[in-house]
Design a binder for these strands. Structure first.
Lengths: 398, 398
DNA sequence: TACCATCACGTAAGCGCTTACTAGTAAGCG
DNA sequence: CGCTTACTAGTAAGCGCTTACGTGATGGTA
């Protein structure tokens, strides 16, 4: 076995290539060598590149001596496989794309918007965790309001599947994407095409919350802060409030419409505080962020929560438990949403997943104090359930 | 010019390849066609693949008629370039890797840890935003405590540069990485190798905070909740507290050591609340998360903040402004940190950046109410600066 | 009218890797 | 002792794209 001929076509400065990356290999005294390839490894170990590849990928049909020789060369040269080349050859990138929407580019507004991003951050984290478990990486791309979905399109050629979060693209775009790539949509209406939809059970959580307010606290008149008309979640929650309230014998005495942001909650809170009419005794906000805004204004205006007005939210974002009073809300399992999205993508890949399927995750009533319940004791970072009052599942049960 | 011969080497089921991805092209009735390549475009438009490539990349030397023909074919076929192939050929992936550390995998503990992740989330967001501006995507990888840095290593072969957040890898690993890839380290000590370090000015912010407590509120005795010994930030903040306190004529009357988590803050808060000795009148927590824990315990135990004990933090995480009382802290520009990291990476690429350089971002004192200042009025989502008392920059000034 | 830029496009090599196919060799068997 | 079988390892094609070179056609100039 003559030591394999190596160094093919002597890199005649032809097209493509050069050292790894377009990036200059030597900038201002920086020392960075050309990244070794399997050709270098092969030369070093005295084998062919096929053998190197087999050794690297732990394929069978190799003597352990040869394998050891190759792995030694890997150490000596500090070899790292070129994922791009691997992906091209192997036919899979081992990457999952995550497309999220960014509401604002405005830096001044950024800190305000942070609050609304907490939810997406959690989804991303869950997805990353799930992807990591199978050795995949997450390619993150955000889409600005007017920027179009070109960025999402480009992801098709760079990933093995796509997770679209929360209306980051239009319906047409979704269809286009799902026609040619495995796609999972989060918080989307029922699938029309190949995409798998993962969302939460808005109606169950909303129902539990309404029933808690009516049956435990005896409220018969509800105020509601609705979400934007464009939101599927907002619509579903509102529908359920109407239906459940009627069934439970309660009346809706006032509605306000926000856009899911904390500042819209503040606007509404101010309107209520400064209004002359009778205030509702309870204000159901259709998400936590608006509740945060309302709570802030009420604190400022000296309106006691929950004694004068009870306030509730929806989502259970991280900050809700740290508010004063801690916010009673419905937990939406954001991390699990992300994790489920990724595993559904894998299912789609292995043929186990059913295109066009819909997966609904359970929500959970989280009773804290803003509804009028009293925490009997504290547990780390959160309130214990009020003493015996409620039948519904409480916070931290998991 | 005879219409170019197309469809080379008739795909004889050879190695590699097949339709895009390892993923089956047809799962349970799902319709997904083989992704069109430039060969398909070339055939459709009646030109060669070189011409297609030139049209796609807006190169010159093409008649506008030909270009239009190619672009029409793109629309008709729904073509998306294969980023992997492009990356391999072009020599750049147009992707930036972001390596972050995950503290826990434990799902039950997850909600507790969320708080500590807020900071990293913000950094990621900033980086993504910055990358997006130049058409780059972010490849996100997290590293678990014991998982080793293999994942980071693999990123070298899949990205054009790496951002390492907050000690996600060891020093040796950092050196190894920086030797063969453009690397920016966040919250790292001074660079020893090629890496560029971006961090915040811990000492300036800490100094302002100490001086505020001493000169504005007249505190002469400070309690300090220190961070973990392993943290560079914690050490620097602590050093500055000691130095500045001495210079300002104040004494440190007690120190406790936490690990930067909210739960360690609760532990310490409990120890202080239940302890028999005299309580410090002010407690400087070296990050916000520990302050959150302290505040929670104090609320539970009926200790008035700031009247009995003033509490301060460091970081200005999102929730700090919504705590009761709103937390006085030092703002660390997390998003800017991420954005700066990415732009430094680009600088490194274009030769403008200096390897081994250190970039320090300014911090800002954020006076709210937990220090004893009183908000005169509220502004959206935050408190206005206390009336005339302070010289330091206040929150929301931007 | 011969010649030479210029333009528009085609040809083909090569990016680094995986893998089907092939070949050589040692062991097993009648 | 010739022949099959099982390993091990090499050869080369091909993944989809970019781009250095070539090559006709065109038009301008001497």
């Amino acid at each position: 076995m003559g030591p394999a001929e190596v160094r093919r076509h002597a890199r005649a400065g032809g097209p493509g290539g050069g050292p790894r990356g377009r990036w200059p290999s030597r900038v201002r005294g920086e020392r960075r060598v050309r990244a070794p390839t399997i050709y270098d490894l092969a030369e070093r170990a005295g084998v062919s590149i096929a053998t190197v590849s087999r050794a690297l990928n732990a394929k069978s049909g190799l003597s352990s001596a040869t394998r050891a020789r190759v792995l030694a060369a890997v150490e000596e040269l500090g070899y790292v496989p070129n994922g791009t080349a691997r992906g091209l050859s192997y036919g899979a990138t081992e990457t999952i794309g995550m497309v999220v929407a960014t509401r604002t580019t405005n830096v001044a507004q950024a800190s305000e918007e942070h609050v609304s991003l907490l939810y997406v951050d959690a989804v991303i984290r869950g997805a990353e965790r799930s992807a990591q478990r199978t050795g995949y990486a997450l390619l993150l791309v955000s889409i600005r309001p007017r920027s179009g979905w070109e960025a999402a399109k480009r992801m098709v050629g760079r990933t093995d599947g796509l997770v679209i979060v929360d209306r980051a693209v239009s319906e047409d775009a979704m269809t286009w994407l799902a026609e040619r790539h495995p796609v999972v949509a989060l918080a989307w209406e029922s699938p029309k095409g190949n995409e798998i939809v993962v969302r939460i059970d808005n109606s169950d959580g909303t129902r539990l919350l309404v029933e808690h307010l009516v049956h435990v606290h005896g409220h018969r008149e509800l105020g509601v802060v609705r979400g934007p008309a464009s939101s599927f979640d907002a619509a579903e929650r509102w529908r359920t409030v109407e239906r459940t309230a009627a069934a439970a014998g309660a009346r809706i005495v006032g509605t306000w419409t926000g856009d899911f942001s904390a500042s819209s909650g503040e606007r509404i809170g101010r309107a209520i505080a400064e209004g002359t009419g009778p205030r509702p005794r309870v204000l159901m906000c259709m998400n936590d962020q608006m509740a945060v805004g309302v709570l802030n204004v009420f604190a400022q205006q000296g309106i006691a929560v929950p004694d004068e007005v009870a306030v509730t939210g929806f989502d259970d974002i991280v900050i809700s438990r740290y508010l004063r009073p801690p916010l009673t809300t419905v937990r939406q399992p954001a991390e699990e949403l992300g994790a489920t999205a990724v595993s559904s993508l894998f299912d789609l890949a292995t043929g186990k997943g059913i295109p066009g399927r819909e997966i609904v995750l359970a929500t959970e009533l989280v009773v804290r104090e803003s509804c009028g319940c009293r925490a009997a004791a504290w547990r780390p970072a959160d309130a214990a359930p009020p003493d015996g009052l409620l039948a519904a599942t409480s916070d931290g049960a998991a």
